[in-house]
Amino acid sequence: MPASTKRPMAPIRYAPLWTRAFHSFNLLVILLMAASGLQIYNANPVFGGRGGATVPELFTLGGWLAGGRDWHFGVMGLYAANLGVWIGLLIRQRHQRLAAMGDLGTLRASSNTPKRRLAVHRLVYTLMLIVLGFSLITGLAMYKPAQFWWLVAPFSFAEAAGHDSWQVLRVCHLATIPAIALLLGAHVVLSWRVGGLRLWRSMAV
């Protein structure tokens, strides 16, 4: 870790309050969406249908199908708005760096480990945004499949192989949970390695 243990530590530079609040709120909203989504999953498991294995109650939210839907569709507006703000902020801040091949260029050319780590970390949370955006698209397609039939259409690619677009959508929507869990894990580990506890505390509310 770059911080020296001999020098007295400089006071932690906390991120602006709104950044910390937004960060925590994002985490909360993602947890609520995932847990209520798993509650909905249990009404008819994507894998195995009525006889399929259900998710342990520990990871679900809502108590029963209607409760899960209350949470899922109650929070989806906040989720979409958050995602929009998040993407907007990142595009504004990272436009030049990404466009000038900043992080990808660093990974290709630099042998400076901390610099590479930082670049990987930024790529991880860019990937998080893509995964979350994908969950929003697949979710909307299943929420209003009749009105947004054009959103369902791209998921009919596997119909020739006997996979109905609906099942493809369900699998895709569900797959965003393990994907975001992996990225969240990478985010936690990388942020620890980039800035240690001091970085964590600077983002804690």
Binding site: T60, L61, G63, R69, W71
Partner: peptide, 23 residues
């Protein structure tokens, strides 16, 4: 947090009551 999740089950109805009319 996990225990809190179970306690939140009752709040879901309130969340629905607030957001469903708009939805």
């Amino acid at each position: 947090l996990l225990l809190g999740g179970c306690a939140l089950n009752g709040v879901g109805e309130a969340v629905g009551t607030v957001t469903q009319p708009l939805n």
